[in-house]
Write a protein that binds this DNA or RNA. Structure first.
Length: 472
RNA sequence: GGCGUGGUAGCCAAACGGUCAGGCAGCGGUCUGCAAAAUCGCAUAAAUCGGUUCAACUCCGAUCCACGCCUCCA
């Protein structure tokens, strides 16, 4: 059983109910990283969006097969590996490793497959051969192989690009191109000196695949000639995705993708964050500054994926406060020992909140609406806790709702295995403070509280004489 | 030049033609030895100018501003 979900399909710019090719199953292809550097959080905005998408589909009852490629051969990987005098494979391995570490830090659920481009050269060659047979590919004087976009009348349908108008102003160096038309893109790039030892044999001579063909070949290998969802950053829409469509549909004669979902940019100080502009933070930078993956995840999922997100440190501060609030809430729930008179109410509130949460997420991933459901539940249940109306069963119903939220949001960690370990020294101080307090020696108890703070712990008194010790 | 997106309170961010978004921060009260946490209450909106309508933040038009794609980019 699956529930109805709606997505905005870039192809026709409409909100559409999602219908998979095979009932109950979804195949998703995502353009992954080019592994020539550490990914920055602008990149991770897209990966978080895709993670949220997959998790939402799972919540709706789908079995999700996500494929994310690793572009481990292209102009930049070759350029930078040579600059460091490293074999390409060794160079990219470093960033592949870093990428997976970063995914883990952000609690991104791994895709089913991460196919590297260099392991799929034969598939790419086969695809180019098919394009040759059907007359869509040609080899130019520079020995590279190009796709002839004039042969594909649908070219531009995704990005809504009109070739005639498009090409006049921008590209003036027509004469420098060996290809027939300036817009034609490379399927196979003939070897040149700059490529060094990065080279494969092909029916057209030594060289390497063009970037676009990598994705087409791997997507259809793992998901079939037509699959459900293709995602990526909006800047990949043209030309990359447009080119994928051209190659794939011309080679196969069938529709390539049913739903295209594109994520808007992450901005910093009002400008796109990108490697080429140099205005980027890597995840590592932020972690080094004491920001957690959890906080960053919370910030990145807070804005609707089709809207630009302006990244600020203030937003990270806000995330920290909000998450702290939830952590505290879970602790109080777990030790709820009221009279139980509010348990039924809590269960009802939890069920309603889950429903609203789903309504939001299933409506084109409206995280803001889902968030309102989450905070609403927090607020109402806090009142029940305040009046000691909640006992274990009621509290458990609420915790269960948060586990459901976390299927998608992945940042609450209701059942984090161990709470931060309390060192013996801190526990002793807290005990001493409790004793001083009991003896109404408040000067001493305040002094001990300050000492605890030095150790990184906050102590909160609970009415009735108890206290709670929390890591700062 | 072509194509496209957006401008909501101090900050972040939704829905919706008529009734509350939500969060963070702030202010006042309750609780507390004092705090903290929680809780109750409060305030601050819809770039500008027109139009449609009984009614517009929500629809239409114009203007201004910002940003993106058209070239490697999530």
């Amino acid at each position: 059983m699956t529930e109805a979900v709606h997505f905005f399909n870039t192809m026709d710019r409409q909100l559409r109910e999602f219908h998979p090719i095979i009932p109950g199953k979804v195949g998703i292809y995502t353009c992954g990283p080019t592994v020539y550097n550490f990914a920055h959080i602008g990149n991770f905005r897209a990966y978080i969006f895709e993670d949220i998408l997959c998790r939402t589909l799972r919540l709706a009852g789908y079995e999700v097969q996500q494929v994310m490629n690793l572009t481990d051969v292209d102009d930049k990987t070759i350029r930078d590996s040579r600059a460091e005098n490293l074999p390409l494979k060794e160079f990219t391995a470093r960033y592949i490793k870093a990428f997976f570490e970063d995914l883990k830090e952000l609690a991104i659920t791994p895709a089913a497959v991460y196919p590297p481009a260099t392991a799929h050269i034969p598939e790419m060659i086969a695809l180019i051969e098919a394009l040759f047979e059907k007359g869509y590919a040609y080899q130019a004087e520079d020995r590279s192989v190009y796709f002839a976009i004039d042969k594909f009348p649908d070219y531009g349908k995704l990005a809504n690009i009109d070739r005639e108008n498009q090409l006049s102003g921008v590209r003036i160096k027509n004469d420098e191109y060996a290809k027939d038309s300036v817009a034609d893109f490379a399927l196979w790039k003939a070897w040149d000196e700059k490529d060094g030892d990065v080279v494969w044999d092909s029916p057209w001579g030594p060289g390497r695949p063009g970037w676009h063909i990598e994705c087409s070949a791997m997507a259809m290998k793992y998901l079939g000639r037509t699959f459900d969802i293709h995602t990526g950053g909006i800047d990949n829409m043209f030309p990359h995705h447009e080119d994928e469509i051209a190659q794939s549909e011309c080679a196969n004669g069938v529709k390539y993708v049913n739903y295209w979902l594109h994520c808007a940019h992450l901005m910093v100080n009002g400008e796109k964050m990108s490697k080429s502009l140099g205005n980027f933070f890597t995840l590592r930078d932020l972690v080094k500054q004491g920001r957690s993956g959890r906080e960053i995840r919370y910030v990145l999922l807070g804005t609707h994926y089709r809207k630009k997100l302006n990244f600020t440190f203030e937003a990270l501060d806000q995330a920290r406060e909000a998450l702290k609030k939830f952590d505290d809430f879970f602790l109080r729930l777990k030790s709820a020992s009221g009279d139980g008179s509010g348990d039924d109410a809590a269960a009802g509130l939890a069920a309603a909140a889950v429903k609203q949460f789903q309504t939001g997420m299933f409506n084109d991933l409206n995280t803001a609406e889902a968030g309102a459901a989450i905070f609403g539940l927090l607020h109402e249940v806090n009142k029940l806790l305040e009046s000691s109306a909640l006992s274990a069963p009621g509290a458990e119903a609420v915790l269960a709702a948060f586990r459901t939220f976390d299927i998608v949001w992945g940042c609450f960690h209701v059942d984090r295995a161990a709470e931060a370990e309390i060192p013996a020294a801190a526990a002793a101080l807290a005990e001493a403070r409790a004793a001083a307090r009991k003896a109404k020696n408040f000067a001493e108890s305040d002094r001990l509280r300050d000492e605890l703070k030095q150790l990184g712990f906050v102590v909160e008194d609970i009415s009735g004489g108890g206290y709670r010790l929390k890591a700062l």
